[in-house]
């Protein structure tokens, strides 16, 4: 378990302020934020390298706010590996290992046993990251902090390494907190997501919730939500609080949604993959149906980003390239747009 409560820390001129979140025992948390948002400082404060100015840190089931680094049972892998250059790979991996045999077992499991006699200076960036991962895992930490540990690996190796770390995470029940820039990685691995910006926490919670229900338009845009619309909420009052059926108005567009936000100005977030396009009106459970005109088709790898003008409001849909081909979408064509009321997140 990793828990921080109202954590503040200072590193030079940079300040990390009032961070609170919890990664339950045996779970995988991800920290996302732009460069300079304090992601590494957060990991270093949990590890005890940067002292906490305020607040409390819990790791592996106990409070470690003022505990020495070596007494925290917290492993740390930096993006730049920090392998000891005066030691060979085998000596690096054996440094702090829980058992004598674990280093060689892990080196074999990660497929890098051939590196054991190599000098650190002769390793590539990717090899260094793998060795640093194995070195941290070889001590069998209860908590492992990973600062972009896969960034120097090629895509194939990255996937394989993610799987291996995930397997060990499950086998050993390690609680992991990982810094990443990769939203796909966050969605794939993270049980809990923490969003940081300029030393402050924007949002923290279960990953699906953070991605589907961003706390603010800024978070939505940061997380790559394709549609963030500004408008006004109106709806019937409901007794006892909780969600209600509302209408969100943005220009000529009136969108049905289910939300607990009060009447008044708000933002609607609709992820592009929740928007469907069709030639004809199709009966479905989706409450929002609009007629529009295709204004842009922009392929992105296996996906295409299709922009449709709906009464002067651009709505973006993310479709597979094959769907775009089947629909024969070209600019200026009329198209039907649909999405469910539950796909609209108001904030």
């Amino acid at each position: 378990m990793i828990r921080v409560e109202h954590l503040s820390a200072r590193q030079g001129a940079f300040k990390l302020e009032d961070i609170s979140f919890e990664v339950p025992e045996g779970s995988w948390g991800v920290v996302i934020g732009p460069a300079g948002s304090g992601k590494t400082t957060l990991l270093e404060t949990i590890a005890g390298i940067v002292p906490a100015a305020r607040g409390r840190v819990f790791a592996a089931g106990r409070e470690v706010t003022t505990a020495p680094i070596s007494a925290r049972s917290v492993g740390l892998v930096y993006q730049h590996a920090y392998l000891f250059p005066h030691l060979r790979v085998g000596e690096n991996v054996a440094y702090g290992a829980a058992t004598q045999t674990l280093p060689s077992t892990l080196l074999a499991r990660f497929g890098i046993e051939a590196l054991i006699e190599r000098r650190v200076a002769s390793l590539s960036g990717g090899e260094r990251q793998l060795v640093a991962l194995v070195r941290a895992l070889a001590q069998q930490p209860r908590v492992l902090l990973l600062d972009e540990p896969f960034s120097a690996l090629d895509p194939k190796r990255r996937n394989a390494t993610r799987r291996l770390v995930r397997d060990l995470h499950r086998e050993w029940g390690i609680t992991i907190l990982q810094v990443t820039h990769d939203f796909a990685e966050a969605g794939l691995l993270g049980d809990v997501t923490v969003l940081l910006d300029a030393g402050r926490m924007l949002q923290a919670g279960p990953t699906a919730e953070v991605f589907q229900k961003p706390a603010s338009p800024y978070v939505a845009e940061f997380l790559g939500a394709e549609n963030v619309l500004a408008g006004t909420v109106t709806g019937d009052p409901v007794g006892g609080g909780g969600s209600r059926s509302v209408v969100f108005t943005c220009g000529a567009l009136a969108v049905h949604a289910v939300s607990d936000v009060p009447d008044g100005p708000a933002h609607a977030v609709i992820r592009g993959e929740e928007v469907t396009l069709s030639r004809e009106h199709q009966a479905s459970s989706a409450r929002n149906h609009f007629a529009g005109t295709v204004t842009d088709v922009d392929p992105h790898g296996p996906w295409a980003r299709v922009t449709v003008d709906v009464g002067g409001v651009p709505i973006v849909a993310m479709l597979t390239n094959s769907s775009v081909s089947e629909l024969g979408l070209t600019n200026g064509e009329s198209i039907r747009v649909a999405f469910k009321a539950f796909a609209v997140h108001l904030c």
Binding site: A47, I49, G75, L76, Y82, Y95, Q139
Partner: peptide
């Protein structure tokens, strides 16, 4: 950070 890493390794 080398020292810090060594301390995280015990």
């Amino acid at each position: 950070r080398y020292e810090a890493v060594a301390q995280t390794l015990g």
